[in-house]
Simulated scan of single mutants.
Amino acid sequence: MPTSLQLREVTPDTFESAIGLRVRPDQEHLVAPVVKSLAEAYVHPGVAWPRLICDGDEVVGFLMAFFEIDWTGKGTDFRSGLWRLNIAADRQGRGYGRFAVRSVAAEIRRRGGTRLTVTWHPGTDGPEAFYLGLGFRPTGETSGGQTVGVLELD
């Protein structure tokens, strides 16, 4: 995995690179475009944590995380996790997704959390194998038709 990887905030200088990021055409139905994620971050201030995934000065991906949200709306199940992950079509398979998940896990740990939650579209064309390969396990729940997975953080 490249050693020059880092997460950066989306700024006016990086906005165009962020919204220009595209996943492969066969993945477009699996993840919202970055511009939608940024709009959601705007209307959910303090909840969404959008970040660019950069290899040196190059934007290679985007992630959006959340921390301690009320998952069920009942005040009894607070979760942190990965809300979105978009890796540029021509940059996939190079470890950027793994870096993103590990970075979110580190931020959750830094904030005192012990579990990372993620959702994915089920099926052979979805990212299930990627998440399972990182150690996520399905919880048996669904959210909006997506599989809910959890990674216990040690």
Rank of each mutant, 00 (worst) to 15 (best):
P25N: 06
E40T: 12
E28N: 10
P45G: 09
V34E: 05
Q27W: 00
V59I: 07
G93F: 08
S80I: 04
E152Q: 00
A100C: 09
S17E: 13
V148S: 07
T119S: 10
I87Q: 02
S80N: 03
G73T: 10
R24Q: 13
V59D: 00
R115P: 00
R137G: 12
G97I: 04
D77R: 12
G149N: 05
H44C: 04
L52Q: 03
G75W: 02
M1Y: 14
N86D: 13
E141G: 04
G61L: 00
I53T: 05
D13A: 14
I19Y: 08
A105C: 14
G145F: 05
E141T: 04
V47N: 01
W120H: 13
A48F: 07
R102Q: 15
R94T: 01
Q92K: 08
V148Q: 04
G81R: 05
A89Y: 06
S17R: 12
Q27I: 07
A105N: 09
T11W: 09
R102P: 00
G73S: 07
E16V: 10
V118R: 03
G140Q: 08
R51A: 13
E68M: 05
T114G: 06
M1P: 12
P122Q: 00
A18L: 06
E128M: 11
P122D: 13
G95W: 07
H121N: 11
V104S: 03
V60E: 04
V23C: 11
L21P: 01
A88P: 00
T114Y: 07
T139V: 09
Q146A: 09
S4D: 15
S37E: 08
L134S: 01
F99D: 01
P138E: 04
L132A: 14
R115T: 15
L38Q: 01
A32E: 11
Q27C: 02
D77N: 13
T72L: 15
D13V: 03
V148H: 07
E152M: 03
H29L: 11
A18P: 04
G56A: 07
D57E: 15
P127R: 06
H121F: 12
V148F: 04
V150M: 12
V43I: 11
D55W: 08
G56I: 12
G46D: 09
A105Q: 09
G126R: 05
E40A: 08
T147D: 03
E28C: 08
M1A: 15
R115M: 11
R91N: 10
G144A: 05
R24S: 09
L38P: 03
V35M: 11
T3D: 14
M64T: 13
P127H: 04
F67G: 03
F78W: 13
T3P: 13
E152K: 02
T124V: 14
W71Q: 11
L85Q: 07
Q146R: 15
E152H: 05
R51G: 05
D13W: 06
G46M: 10
A105L: 05
R51C: 13
G56L: 07
L38M: 11
P138Q: 09
W49H: 08
